[in-house]
Nucleic acid binder design. Structure first.
Length: 570
RNA sequence: UCGCGGGUAGUUCAGUUGGUAGAACACCAGACUUUGAAUCUGGGGGUCGCAGGUUCAAGCCCUGCCCCGCGAGCCA
């Protein structure tokens, strides 16, 4: 079912020409320095799906070449999130650090070939001498050391004879190269830091550019897929591999555009800031774009996968609408989520002609999209909660829910007609007095009269209390940081609203993480830790909201026109 | 400023060897409906970045220009 794109086209061509003997082997290479987010999901889906489609496999490899940044906790978290998304890596997780020994040997090979040298300049000097976009770099004074001297020095680096930062190993390529990454890039640096896997075994660590391609090669990766910002690294990727004796065919790097979403930040730095300043509860807050956040929010992994599959692949940087992702979430949940009734903003309905003390057990369909989901029974009594919005004393145009004198259907219940209300001192409705028609138990009136609306309800006597988190966009700006503004400038202080809701009794029996549909409201996920807390995953499409919005816009335009007409002519 | 990569509906992407520009989501309208949901049907939407050139014919080929992204870590 997968669409065709430039990467799949290339792989098909490679298979036909048997470039890698027809093999396809990909990898997902996260650095264990943070939690996975929806942006990573694109890379994950891409690498795993492609392997699957072409009968290959996909490795999970931790790119752990920088002990300063990495933490073992993330290794576990990443594997959990990957499993949650529904992917199983080929064999055990791999680590770039598994190859430190081989990488070291290769570094000596390069020195032997006269293609690498030890540089005594400090970081600032190296940076200054690299030149700029318009100015060529200048050669290091240590560039022409002999092979023997380089070898001895490099071994000394490895043996811990020099201070951190005192020396580096550099590739000897071309300080005049138009591509900055080719101006004698650093291959090894001295860093006395405990590594998550190798502890204090090493004091020198390879850079990304001296580890990634070789790791690919060692694992027999054929197609090394990465994001566009590595485009400039490709010549270096190839240079390194071309100068080494590889155990397999040389892998090929291909770049694609990373995922951007409206109203969303993907930057780890900014996400950390949100966590640290308390704007969100943590990395797994339901408003975070992390996989853990989306999981708490109730996003089905399948919806994420289908979304990624749908948006396709290109080399064009762009931004997808978050609404598109949400539409995949709805489509997925519509088919699977059990329907339940919950009232988020309750107002009391008294049925005046209901037999005193009677409880009627109503049979309600669990999921109209899935006959196998069966039915449940819901207690109905003479005192109910309904949604405050479903009653109006002064109904706006096109409003067709409950209002005085009008009849509506209670879902899976009876037709009721509002007769009267009780208000408090502020005029706020506190009780709606209604009559019901016992003949409408089947959901239809025997005389064939129709009602325009069906509303949901919960028996007051049987209602469960629960907290529900309602979410708005974390960032109100579609493109945060657009036009040079602060990325968090549009941080929404009201991105989460908690309401105490009334639930039908069967909702006592839910699993952590389960997502149900509160009828007419949206999809709601049971919290992972507290089953009396629900998170609004995503609302239902809301035609009424749209009607109101349109009316508001029309009014606004009318006012603007009026004002324009009145504007003085200067 | 230099190098690289890009530019096709609101958004994300298709577009074969040059032959009347497509899809999905979004938007609008209608049908159906015990969720103003879902489902179904239909509709509006485009100076193919701009300007030249080649050609009977250019989104596609050629030239020039414009705009956007990335790049000067001992981060990945």
């Amino acid at each position: 079912m997968s669409s065709s794109d430039f990467i799949r086209d290339k792989i098909k061509a490679d298979i036909e020409s048997s470039k890698f003997g027809g093999r396809v082997h990909t990898r997902f290479p996260p650095e264990p320095n943070g939690y996975l987010h929806i942006g990573h999901a694109k890379s994950i889906c891409l690498n795993f799906s492609i392997a699957d489609e072409f009968g290959g496999s996909c490795n999970l490899r931790f790119d752990d070449t920088n002990p300063d940044a990495e933490d073992a906790d993330f290794v576990d978290a990443i594997q959990e999130d990957l499993a949650w998304l529904g992917f199983e890596p080929n064999g055990e997780a791999k680590y770039a650090s598994d190859y430190f020994e081989q990488l070291y040997t290769w570094a000596e090979d390069l020195i032997q070939k006269g293609l690498a040298y030890v540089d005594d300049q400090d970081a600032e000097t190296i940076s200054a001498n690299r030149g700029g976009f318009t100015t060529p770099g200048v050669d290091s004074p240590w560039r022409e050391r002999s092979v023997e001297e380089n070898l001895e020095l490099f071994r000394g680096m490895c043996a811990g004879e020099f201070d951190d930062g005192a020396k580096v190993l550099r590739a000897k390529i071309d300080m005049q190269h138009p591509n900055m990454h080719m101006r004698d890039p650093v291959l090894y640096r001295i860093k006395r830091a405990a590594h998550i896997r190798t502890g204090n075994d090493w004091v020198i660590y390879p850079t990304y550019d001296f580890a990634h391609g070789q790791s690919d090669a060692i694992e027999g990766i054929t197609h090394s897929l990465c994001t566009l910002e590595f485009d400039d690294h490709r010549p270096l990727y190839n240079w390194v591999l071309n100068n080494l004796d590889l155990p397999h065919e040389k892998p090929e790097q291909t770049e694609f555009a990373r995922l951007n979403l409206t109203h969303t930040v993907m930057s780890k730095r900014i996400l950390r800031q949100l966590v640290e300043d308390g704007s969100v509860d943590g990395w797994d807050d339901a408003r975070m774009p992390t996989l853990r956040g989306l999981r708490r929010r109730g996003y089905p992994p399948a919806a994420i996968r289908e979304f990624i599959d749908h948006i396709g692949l290109a080399r064009v940087d762009g931004t997808n609408e978050i609404e598109l992702l949400e539409s995949f979430v709805r489509t997925s949940l519509n088919k699977t989520a059990l329907r339940r009734m919950a009232v988020l903003d309750p107002v009391k309905v008294i049925i005046t002609n209901w037999p005193e003390g009677k409880t009627d057990l109503r049979e309600a369909v669990n999921n109209p999209e899935d006959a196998d989901a069966g039915t449940r029974s819901v207690p109905f009594t003479g005192e109910l909660w309904i949604e405050r919005e479903d009653f109006s004393l002064d109904p706006p145009p096109k409003y067709y829910r409950l209002t005085i004198g009008r009849e509506v259907r209670l879902r899976s219940g009876y037709f009721i007609t509002a007769q009267d209300v009780v208000t408090d001192d502020d005029g706020k409705v506190v009780e709606i007095h209604c009559t019901y028609d016992p003949e409408t138990a089947g959901g239809q009136a025997p005389d064939g009269r129709k009602v325009k609306a069906t509303i949901h309800w919960v028996s007051a006597e049987h209602a469960l209390d629960a907290n529900v988190h309602l979410y708005e966009r974390l960032l109100t700006e579609a493109l945060p940081g657009k036009d040079g503004q602060e990325i968090l400038a549009s941080l929404n202080p009201e991105s989460r609203k908690t309401v105490s809701a009334k639930l039908e009794p069967i909702l006592a029996d839910v699993e952590p993480g389960q997502v149900v549909q509160f009828e007419r409201l949206g999809y709601f996920a049971v919290d992972l830790d507290d089953t009396s807390l629900f998170h609004r995953t995503v609302g239902l499409r809301d035609e009424w909201a749209r009607i109101q919005k349109r009316q508001n816009n029309q009014n606004k335009q009318k006012n603007q026109k009026k004002n324009k007409g009145r504007a003085p002519i200067s």
